[in-house]
């Protein structure tokens, strides 16, 4: 498995990276942690003339919290997400999800930006970001713009990001209440057979708000308002959970693969979501 030839670029700032994207056009691809792109290059399924590596851009790294808003630089690694005490306090679901991504070595390299930007339906962070109602900041030749994670994904590997844009950071409000990320997979290192992210707040024994998103069950992550609504105002009893999972399962559209046929995935999605809700509620 040997990649084809390319030229390598290592800009030191975002502007430089964007300029390269403008200059080099279709032949250029941006690489973050590289653990999705480089295997594809080695399999010669991604053929590119120029590789623009973002690893030297310091402005893309780090986690900050300001007035309850968490901002994470695109080049922050999964490992850094896991290690951040500050983030674990502000939004513990991120750590819980990040720990279920790939394996330790991959998490040292893999970045949140790469994970959300490349549009692979198997990635865990996009669904999580939809659950968190995160906002992505994209920088392009005309400056910066914000896109909601819930609006970002169009189809597998197709997103709202323009060719000459770079996803620079992700921000979301710190969470309160219960949370859980559950993922069924065949083994460590696998993508999800089904995974779901749930945030729930509780008020006087009742669900005050809920947010539900699912991973690898359609060609984009699936955020389900209907599923969330089914929980709000209930005591998250069996009937409410059943209604929520039914709504979520109606929203997904999984494809058959080696993990199993559609019927199985739909069933497991419901089971996993019910468990995620139960666990999140128990923490609310």
């Amino acid at each position: 498995m040997i990649p084809g030839s390319f030229e390598y670029h290592q800009p030191h700032d975002v502007e430089g990276a964007i300029r390269l994207l403008q200059d080099l056009g279709d032949e250029a691809r941006v690489v973050a942690g590289g653990h999705s792109l480089i295997p594809m290059m080695k399999l010669r399924m991604a053929d590119l003339g120029h590789l623009i590596d973002l690893r030297r851009i310091e402005a893309l790294k780090g986690i900050s919290i300001d007035g309850g808003t968490v901002t994470i630089g695109a080049m922050t690694t999964q490992h850094e997400l896991i290690e951040s005490k500050m983030l674990a306090d502000a939004a513990p679901i991120v750590r819980e999800a990040a720990l279920q991504i790939a394996d330790p070595q991959v998490r040292y390299c893999g970045t949140i930006g790469g994970n959300v930007a490349n549009g692979d339906p198997g990635n865990d962070m996009p669904g999580l970001m939809q659950c968190l109602d995160a906002t992505y900041t994209l920088a392009g030749p005309d400056g910066e713009r914000q896109v909601a994670a819930r609006e970002f994904y169009e189809a597998a590997y197709f997103t709202a990001r323009e060719d000459e844009e770079i996803l620079t950071s992700i921000s979301f409000a710190g969470t309160a209440g219960g949370y859980a990320y559950e993922k069924q997979k065949r083994k460590i290192g696998d993508y999800a057979t089904a995974a779901s992210a749930v945030l729930i707040t509780k008020n006087g024994g009742q669900c005050a708000s809920a947010s539900i998103a699912m991973t690898n069950l359609a060609d984009t992550p699936v955020f389900s308002d209907e599923a969330s609504d089914a929980l709000v105002g209930t005591s998250v009893d069996d009937a409410a959970i059943k209604a929520a999972t039914a709504a979520a399962v109606a929203a997904i559209d999984p494809a058959e693969d080696n993990r199993g046929p559609v019927e199985f995935k739909k069933h497991v999605a419901g089971v996993i979501l019910a468990r995620t809700v139960e666990r999140a509620w128990s923490r609310a």
């Binding site: 590289g34 480089i38 590596d53 690893r55 330790p104 070595q105 991959v106 040292y108 390299c109």
Partner: peptide, 15 residues
């Protein structure tokens, strides 16, 4: 200071 799979890193990235 990180465990890295050297089959998925280009040498130029290790500058």
């Amino acid at each position: 200071g990180k465990s890295v799979k050297a089959c998925t890193v280009f040498a130029v990235q290790a500058e």
